[in-house]
Design a protein around this nucleic acid. Structure first.
Length: 320
DNA sequence: GAACGGTGGCGTCTCACATA
DNA sequence: TATGTGAGACGCCACCGTTC
């Protein structure tokens, strides 16, 4: 299929060592220097040096003690000066809120209720708020990051739970220290009209119909757009085609079923919209780097502490 | 030997994209 | 908005390896 050389959208497997959560400092991986998107959430903590962040339509100079929150599928680039010290945290919505049924793609336009999903409030307000941690709180910030780096490095039993707790402490702590400006920003945001609720309708339809047939035309009908217009709009907003977005969600559902159920691969293939289990296995291998059966076995070993799943892509050097 | 899982080949269909 | 094109998505089939 023809692909224009547009803005790239990265998956966790391409930029992180784990599929659920990852944290690294400036020494681990080179920062991307071109505007790009992620499928996952990112928190960037600037510890030394003055950086420039372009997020969506805003350009901001940030200094040490700034915490930057980047929503999934938000175009951005962070330009760090030589010698800068920073920490990058990447995680999926499911890691942050395992009970959430929201689609990361629709978050930006969902007018999310900050009281129902307070963890994502700073991500929604990032373009108009500089989240700062004062000089006196820097020891707290360093201690929290050090604990996360250590736990992520060791990755043993209950590490996911510990990392989630540290992450919530970081997000909550930053929100608490910036609560007034954050509340004002969220109020202003709610006042805006929800111009792009078509994206919410499309992502909701994808989640509802993962196990069945879903064509571009169906999604276009749901969004009250022509198929051509919808395809173009999806590409513009997400960097992904309709099929790519749908396949990503099917793979994610398959991953969950492999980890949380004892269904046979054929049943999982059918449950995720594939009538051909061999084709399902092929796509799964393309997406995660391992076959479905191997993925399940690795997951079982991981839960018993014998091994840890690490996608093959994460072994590769930085892409930029 | 049966069940399950994985891979390869091949034909058909879908849809992104360019163009008018 | 309609249309043509072609790459990729998809399904079907055959075959092989592993496990029980």
């Amino acid at each position: 299929m023809k692909r224009s050389p547009g803005m790239r959208t990265y998956a966790m497997a391409e930029r992180a060592s784990h599929l659920d959560f990852d944290i690294r400092d400036q020494s681990v991986r080179q920062q991307l220097t071109q505007p790009h998107r992620h499928e996952y959430f990112q928190v960037l903590v600037t510890l030394r040096g003055e950086a420039t962040h372009l997020i969506g339509g805003s350009v901001r100079k940030v200094r040490a003690g700034t915490v930057t929150f980047v929503l999934p599928y938000r175009s951005h680039v962070c330009v760090m000066p030589p010698g800068a010290e920073y920490v990058v945290i990447s995680f999926s919505l499911r890691f942050l809120r395992p009970d959430s049924t929201l689609d990361p793609l629709g978050l930006e336009y969902a007018n999310a209720n900050a009281s129902a999903l307070p963890e994502i409030a700073p991500f929604l307000a990032q373009e108009v708020v500089d989240f700062m941690v004062g000089e006196s709180d820097m020891p707290w910030l360093h201690a929290t990051l050090d604990a996360m780096l250590r736990e992520n490095r060791e990755r043993r039993a209950f590490s996911a739970m510990m990392l989630r707790a540290f992450l919530l402490e970081l997000i909550g702590g930053v929100c608490r220290r910036n609560d007034r400006v954050l509340a004002e920003a969220l109020d202003a945001r709610r006042a805006l009209s929800n111009r792009q609720d078509w994206l919410v309708r499309v992502t909701r339809l994808m989640q509802e119909r993962l196990g069945g047939d879903l064509a571009l035309k169906d999604a276009a009908d749901a969004a009250n757009l022509s198929p051509g217009h919808l395809a173009h709009a999806l590409k513009r907003e997400t960097g992904r085609t309709f099929t790519e977005l749908l396949t990503e969600r099917r793979m994610e559902r398959a991953r969950e079923l492999l980890m949380s159920s004892s269904l046979r691969l054929t049943e999982i293939a059918h449950a995720t919209g594939f009538t051909d289990e061999s084709y399902f296995a092929r796509r799964f291998r393309q997406h995660f780097g391992v076959s479905p059966g191997a993925f399940r076995r690795q997951g079982e070993q991981e839960t018993t502490g014998k091994a840890q799943f690490c996608p093959i892509d994460s072994q590769q050097p930085s892409i930029s």
